[in-house]
Design a protein around this nucleic acid. Structure first.
Lengths: 140, 140
DNA sequence: CTACACCTTCAACCTATATTTAAGGTCAAG
DNA sequence: CTTGACCTTAAATATAGGTTGAAGGTGTAG
């Protein structure tokens, strides 16, 4: 399988696969003419790797971090003392991030509810804006 | 209060306050000499606005979205039908994001546990890597 | 008056993460 | 053989979110 079909299958641009490969988080076999060639196993590996990479990226890991974690994990010699520390820091970040996301999610849900009510009754202001009163933003 | 002290109080760079003001999500009064001047109320407003802005940013809202939401919320004429739709989409995004973050958080925690065990017993591989087998990454 | 910290604007630059484009090679169908 | 889809690399551009630097004004202390 060539890169175009793999990209379509993954729902991403071929350029992104090339980019990730250049970054060092993916690899590929090549045909004699230089084209990237993905066998059956390679396709499955790529899909799995991409799923991990995109998911990690989506929750705030940089490609550098992902690369370090993946490579370190695959190395036969552990030597991971440093990495475990880095991952623990990331775990803390992630927990704080989840707490914050949840808080914002709840406020957003309240806001939507309040705005929806306001469509009917105009007096009802969003709770989270009432809490701190009108904030001076731009243009006042 | 001038921008430097406000920035120190907020723990951010003065340049960031200027940047956010230029972006349209903050405002300021000016002294006759052009310096930004924050009165007592303005300081509180700025702190509140910054808290909201940074938190929203940290969970994936762009400055454009934050600006639209804040300005729309403060407008006297609701006309928010569009915004409610946008916010609902964002709420969905946020819920998916929380689910994904939580999943990655749990896997990360397992990975740390496994790596910590491996420091003692080298056979014990991280569960999330066992699940999908070795992934072909770069350099193999 | 001199120093020095602080402020202004505006434009340039930076990092991360890609995408797009330019110039060219490969290949199967008609 | 030509056309068009697809591939290659390298370099330029895009986008978000800033930071930095130049050039210059302000304010206060010695």
């Amino acid at each position: 399988m060539k890169i175009g079909e793999l990209a379509r299958r993954l729902g991403i641009a071929p350029s992104k696969i090339r980019f990730l490969e250049a970054r060092g988080v993916l690899c590929s076999d090549r045909l004699p003419n230089g084209y990237r060639d993905y066998g059956e196993d390679a396709v499955e590996d790529a899909v799995t790797a991409l799923r991990i990479i995109l998911q990690a990226q989506s929750v705030g890991f940089t490609l550098d971090e992902i690369e370090r974690a993946l490579l370190e994990n695959q190395s036969k010699q552990p030597s991971c003392a440093d990495m475990i520390e880095r991952l623990k820091v990331k775990l803390g970040d992630l927990n704080r991030h989840i707490a914050q996301s949840t808080e914002v999610r709840d406020r957003l849900a309240q806001m939507i509810a309040a705005l929806t009510r306001r469509e009917v009754d105009n007096r009802d202001l969003p709770v989270d804006l009432q809490d701190h009163g009108p904030v001076r933003l731009a243009g006042e």
